[in-house]
Design a binder for these strands. Structure first.
Lengths: 201, 201
DNA sequence: AAGGAAATCTATAAACTTATAGAAATTCTA
DNA sequence: TAGAATTTCTATAAGTTTATAGATTTCCTT
């Protein structure tokens, strides 16, 4: 079999595999890992339940695939942002904006990563834990640098601040899908303002 | 049968029922609604699986009971706080402090309410939705009053601000059980400072 | 201590779910 | 278009879980 040299490199299998990951993401996001059945995923793909096992060796493997795929994109963005060395406020705004955009474009992956990754048994959580602690470490770097440059209050604990910030991020996701007609720019701006400048007069 | 007049008013049944709700809370918090079985709850109570149905007509009813019990306490506190009419900053600090304390003292209920209430099918979510939208409304009242008094930036959208604040609250819960040796006072103070005064210099 | 009420137990049906094996259909390539 | 590789299907085993019915035990009152 000859690969088309200049066409996109994804094989038919890879494309279909990604469709399977997408379907799993949608179903897990909708019903939760335990609430979802392999039947639901298969139906979304228009194949029979048993056929799904051509793509995943187990339901768990499907969840892991969704989580890994989901975090990859966020991690890549954060890394690019860190390299840019923009001012702290601009960086915070950019992350908020990117998160909101992702919640729109990649809602299923975000939800599954946030809510279902702990369904993977501890002994197989290695790769995902690796990735999410990496995400956390990148945020810590950003905050630490901001403190060194005097852009962020020096006495705030880095770890707690990062947690507070990721709390803001995840709060967006929790109401995003109930409130469809969201103005991404306005919300990102308001969240930025609260986090950067506080709510008090 | 004579009720003891001055003793505590809980009947034997009520006490045991609350023990069942506690057990359900612990198991649901640990494994999630779908991941948990009625067997697990029964084991925690030291009874057989079938006996559990003496207290709950269904697994779903157990979840609903846990959620309702969980939110009741938070709602009562918020209402008392609203009546006190303390300054905005003090109110925010008090809520954060109370939430952190609850996460310690009533961790299971908090976790189940946060993470599992959506497992109740839509047609039976009425009572819980009622309670949590009440919680939200109380926060909105607090914020609106702060704006009217000039204690909070007037141009911030109330709804978005409340969301941002509850985001902070829930971020606390997400790392609380991984980080046992938490200093409640210090964390509450830092979160308050970020929310009230921002992170920028 | 007897009798009734409360609480728990035993046993099981009914349904659902994951995962597997081998057959069948489809698609690709030469 | 024939044969090979890929993809999907059928059928089912094996295990799990919820919920019920009726028996049994424990507890309380008199």
């Amino acid at each position: 079999m000859m690969e088309p040299v200049l066409a996109d490199k994804k094989s038919k299998y890879d494309q279909r595999y990604m469709a399977a990951v997408d379907a799993a993401a949608a179903v897990f996001a909708d019903k939760g890992y335990h609430g979802a059945g392999t039947l639901n995923i298969a139906e979304k793909l228009n194949i029979k339940q048993g056929s799904l096992y051509y793509y995943f060796p187990s339901k768990e493997a499907a969840l892991e695939a969704v989580c890994l795929e989901g975090v990859k994109y966020q991690l890549a963005y954060l890394e690019s942002l860190l390299r840019e060395e923009r001012p702290f406020a601009a960086t915070i705004r950019a992350i908020l904006h990117h998160t909101l955009t992702s919640l729109h474009d990649r809602a299923d992956y975000m939800i599954v990563f946030d809510d279902e990754r702990q369904c993977i048994p501890v002994e197989r959580r290695g790769r995902i834990r690796e990735q999410s602690s990496h995400y956390h470490k990148l945020l810590e770097q950003i905050f630490r640098r901001a403190q060194q440059r005097g852009e962020m209050k020096g006495h705030l604990d880095i770890y707690i601040s990062v947690r507070a910030f990721t709390g803001l991020l995840s709060s967006i996701s929790s109401w995003y899908h109930t409130q469809q007609d969201i103005d991404v720019e306005a919300v990102a701006e308001q969240y930025s303002e609260v986090f950067l400048g506080g709510s008090c007069v």
